[in-house]
Nucleic acid binder design. Structure first.
Length: 330
DNA sequence: AAGAGCGCCAACCGCTTTTCT
DNA sequence: TAGAAAAGCGGTTGGCGCTCT
């Protein structure tokens, strides 16, 4: 028995939704709740595919949707999240209440991606690298598929206020620290994790100690980077973001950087921050170290002419658990 | 004034993941 | 346990409207 198509293609309406269709769908969902998308069109009297109904509801008709332009804060949050998560729009959208993945994706493609391209600059050996050290992280599994009631409940309980990313009793062990999902990254990250587990015989099979996370979200073992050089941001964007299925992997990038004699400050790419510790929740909540005052990344968008002081400047004097350093630019 | 070009965004498509039977 | 079904996700498309020439 073959799999049935998601909907009867013949006789179904496509294209823009009319006000009447919107009303039918809204009334039906208000009366019966979300879900059962396959049977919904028939029950609601709509000549639409269930998928189409779901999309229309999620992206347009839901009452909690925010309309209008993205604020500067939202834009900055998207940039920060995208730097760490890549094109995981639904995950990004989960941190922007009232915004949908489709909306964010469109906004990124039409506005923000252009900014990214505009500030990508050639290799300049005078600037220090971005190095973020994340003590412990858990590989975020790709969400998707059908949700059971139980999992939906779990999701609802943890999603509010991004509580799922809060530190546990051990302040340095976080429940989830997601990073981009690309074939290369997943392969590399999994191999690193396996390697570390083997070395220390750890029971914490999903944590990543002594690893580095740069703003694109690349995770690499500290010792590998120290000995082989950093996978620079341009390489990362070229291979992972711009050419997500490129053939170059981290080990190859590390090999390519071998000529830099492992001195991380002797050569770098476009980004220039040094962070000893990194807390995901701060990024999500907008308390990230790179705010307007101590900017970490905003300079990337605004100017090509920054002089690097090269000092390590401690932010967060009031929080000994979270020591963040950044290079200062003038 | 008209048409070509371009950007935005709603909607579609195909694939993956999860759940169900 | 396998396969079907349902749902979710990200990439892509196409139409509309605005701007420019």
């Amino acid at each position: 028995m073959g799999r049935a198509p998601c909907c009867e293609k013949v006789g179904l309406k496509r294209g823009r939704w009319t006000a009447e269709e919107d009303e039918l769908l809204t009334k039906y969902i208000q009366a019966n709740g979300e879900g059962s998308w396959r049977s919904l069109p028939k029950n609601a009297g709509l000549l639409r595919c269930g998928k189409s109904c779901r999309l229309r509801w999620i992206n347009y008709l839901r009452a909690d949707l925010k309309r209008g332009n993205f604020t500067a804060q939202e834009e900055q949050l998207i940039l920060n999240l995208h730097a760490s998560l890549g094109n995981r729009w639904s995950l990004i959208a989960s941190h922007l209440p009232g915004r949908t993945d489709n909306e964010i994706k469109n906004y990124w493609n039409s506005h923000l991606s252009r900014k990214i391209h505009s500030f990508r600059r050639p290799f300049t050996p005078t600037m220090p690298p971005v190095v973020m050290d994340i003590n412990k992280a858990v590989i975020a599994k790709r969400k998707g598929g059908r949700n059971s009631k139980a999992s939906t409940k779990r999701h609802n309980n943890t999603d509010a206020g991004s509580s799922s990313n809060k530190p546990t009793e051990n302040p340095r062990v976080y429940e989830t620290v997601p990073f981009p999902s690309t074939p290369i990254l997943e392969k590399e990250t999994l191999s690193f994790t396996a390697m570390e587990d083997k070395e220390r015989g750890s029971e914490e099979g999903t944590t990543m100690e002594n690893s580095m996370l740069c703003p694109s979200g690349i995770l690499a073992p500290l010792e590998s980077i120290e000995s082989n050089g950093m996978p620079w941001f341009d390489d990362i964007t070229n291979t992972e973001l711009l050419q997500p299925h490129g053939d170059l992997d981290l080990s190859e990038m590390a090999a390519n950087n071998n000529n830099d004699s492992g001195d991380m400050n002797s050569s770098c790419s476009i980004t220039s921050c040094f962070v000893d510790d990194w807390e995901w929740e701060r990024v999500v909540n907008g308390n990230e170290p790179w705010d307007e005052k101590e900017f970490m990344c905003s300079w990337l968008w605004e100017s090509n002419d920054h002089n690097v002081k090269g000092d390590r400047h401690k932010l967060n004097d009031d929080n000994d658990d979270f020591e963040t350093y950044t290079w200062l630019f003038t």
